[in-house]
């Protein structure tokens, strides 16, 4: 972390007490205005080589140029703002697509429409000591996928490439 802005702005009678993390990739050598993720106070900062050269100075009424990536409140039970909370933290552009964040995707067909075996749970091997039969017979082991495959074939959704 290049530096943080520990916001002490008094809001509603008590200090905001939020740590705004200034990630080095964006803030290492940067001059501009950034906001506190909690109370929205705008601060002017000028960072050189990851060190705070000017600021943070409050700039009431001005708009921030860039938000911090992440913020938390370590003294108050670690509530936090993950990247990409609208109006508070900056979205992390490399964030995986939503389908990468949940449970594993149970794909039944490859992109050309032929069946794959990639879902769970799988039937046990039926062999000794984890011995697996080398030919996976889709018709026998997953009749419903086989039926779906036949449908796809009829509709012309199965391609060779």
């Amino acid at each position: 972390m290049a530096d943080v802005i520990w916001c002490k702005k008094v809001v509603g009678g008590k200090p905001c007490n939020t740590v705004n993390y200034l990630d080095p990739y964006c803030f290492w050598n940067w001059e501009g205005k950034t906001n506190c993720a909690e109370c929205g106070t705008v601060y002017y900062i000028y960072m050189i080589q990851g060190h705070m050269y000017r600021g943070p100075d409050e700039k009431p009424g001005e708009k921030p140029d860039m938000s911090p990536l992440y913020a938390d409140k370590p003294l108050e039970g670690y509530t936090y703002y993950l990247p990409g909370v609208k109006g508070r933290t900056r979205p992390y552009e490399c964030l995986p697509r939503h389908i990468y964040l949940g449970r594993a995707d149970m794909v039944k067909f490859s992109i050309r429409g032929k069946p794959v075996r990639g879902w769970r749970p799988q039937p046990p091997s039926g062999g000794l000591a984890g011995q697996f039969p080398y030919k996976w017979d889709i018709k026998k082991l997953s009749p419903e996928v086989w039926a779906e495959y036949q449908e796809k074939r009829k509709k012309g959704e199965v391609k060779e490439w």
């Binding site: 995986p96 389908i99 990468y100 964040l101 949940g102 449970r103 594993a104 995707d105 794959v116 075996r117 990639g118 879902w119 769970r120 749970p121 799988q122 046990p124 091997s125 062999g127 984890g130 697996f132």
Partner: peptide, 11 residues
């Protein structure tokens, strides 16, 4: 990421 697993790992 959390996507491409082929099952099962082991009996």
């Amino acid at each position: 990421f959390n996507e491409a697993y082929l099952y099962p790992l082991h009996d």
